[in-house]
Design a protein around this nucleic acid. Structure first.
Lengths: 252, 252
DNA sequence: TCAATAGTGTCTTTGAGACACTATCCG
DNA sequence: CGGATAGTGTCTCAAAGACACTATTGA
């Protein structure tokens, strides 16, 4: 940027050396009532044979979020799912090939409908329980995963994100189980019932599910209520928390 | 990524078209008890003559945060200041020159010691009260600024970030004034005294500052206390909030 | 009947907020 | 003394947590 007479005609982008830019997507789901993360096994150097967070290069024509959604769909066949930007990792030597800056996203997909595909660059794709994920992962992906978990925990505390992990129809105690899974602590049943009902985010379906004991009432998430994602505060938020959403910006 | 026999020797990074990567730094300070943001006036196309958030290209050898600190120092002469990553903006057409992905940071500098310099690419640098910043800014910088403000407000609610805006020694009511400035609402004096003292983050200096009425007791921020930044929760956190810090990752 | 699971009621403690009060300076 | 600014005390109300209780099924 030393040229004093730069215009549309004279500007030459090739003058500056450029890093590569990738998106990596940390994809969580709930399988057998336990939180899982999707990892791919690398086929090639570098980190050949290591498990990694799925990702790929950003195309010149697509936005970062589009790139993240494309990766997500390539790996799981899932579209229209919750996704948000997590953090951008850009240490100069995080990838031995060249300078690579990676914009990390995290996504939540419902327990039911994913269909995994092994992509070109991988020899395997698998869901791992987050408590039993392989370590170390390729590149700085351990750090990315750790950060995604912090963000996920944090957001559950003040958003309705947990619903993104549940099927269409669910019981209150199933919802409670998700919170316990992700927070790693037991919650009081009575208090949970009280809070979730006071929040007014549930719609009674009238359905029951039979089990061993008393049948369970089933609910649906009321997407119409409140401001969408930030409908109720489960409890006082802790550290971290995610970056804002568009709707928050409008209030400033 | 279709070559099956890729190794360190055969890998050719030039095969993929690459975006440019910049860092933009939203720099806040407190001048005359009011929150200000630093903007630069562009000398060249595109957006010639528009005010913009200072930033520049990331060099191949430096990390993103190093680049942000370098920009900060180039513009204000300030080093060793609070800085954190905000969000990465990467819409394909946000810059007419070429595909530019911008990693935004936000920084807080103390009221006292900045010394502005007009850099190569600018014709002016100025502090603007955030409530009277020019609009529109160049590129998508309005959006970046809005996001930085949301993040700043959010973080004040559960961190001790406000101290970064104050001089070494300050009074409790000065601190209260910062919160009021940034939240845009009046706080109760009694409740503020109670909370801030219970938090145990202040160290009495024994100093007094004389004024028109009763002299003010002056305090220092106890940097040793608690877990550094996240020492006390001013009040229940609202929406947004920033991404986590390293120390949070270690607990997961 | 009991085991198993679902769901409710209530007491106590904590902390946020409102607001009135007291303290110490200058003139 | 009064005006100005600093700093404290106290009451109320709402939400969070602990925990005991009741409900409804199948075997």
């Amino acid at each position: 940027m030393t040229d004093a007479e730069e215009t549309a005609e004279t500007y030459d982008p090739s003058r500056y050396e450029r890093p590569s830019v990738t998106v990596d997507v940390v994809i969580f789901t709930l399988i057998d009532r336990e939180l899982h993360v999707l990892l791919v096994r690398r086929k090639r150097w570098p980190y050949e044979g290591y498990w990694a967070i799925p990702g790929g290069f950003v195309q010149m024509h697509e936005s970062l979020e589009d790139a993240a959604r494309r990766e997500l769909e390539e790996e799981t066949g899932v579209r229209d799912i919750y996704i948000e930007q997590l953090y951008t990792f850009g240490d100069p030597n995080r990838d031995p090939r060249t300078r690579v800056i990676s914009v990390a996203y995290f996504a939540l997909v419902r327990a039911d409908r994913q269909r995994l595909r092994v992509s070109e660059e991988s020899i395997d794709v698998r869901w791992f329980p987050v408590r039993a994920a392989p370590s170390p992962l390729a590149f700085d992906h351990d750090r990315i995963l750790a950060m995604a978990l912090v963000r996920l925990r944090s957001k559950l505390e003040y958003t309705t994100l947990a619903f993104e992990l549940l099927p269409e129809v669910f019981s209150i105690l199933e919802l409670k189980h998700i919170y316990e899974q992700i927070f790693g602590e037991k919650l009081d049943k009575g208090n949970f019932y009280r809070k979730i009902k006071d929040a007014g985010v549930l719609e009674e379906t009238g359905l029951l599910r039979e089990g061993r004991g008393r049948p369970t009432r089933l609910y649906r998430f009321r997407r119409d209520r409140g401001d969408g994602q930030f409908v109720f505060r489960w409890r006082e938020a802790r550290i971290d928390a995610g970056e804002s959403h568009e709707r928050d910006l409008s209030s400033s």
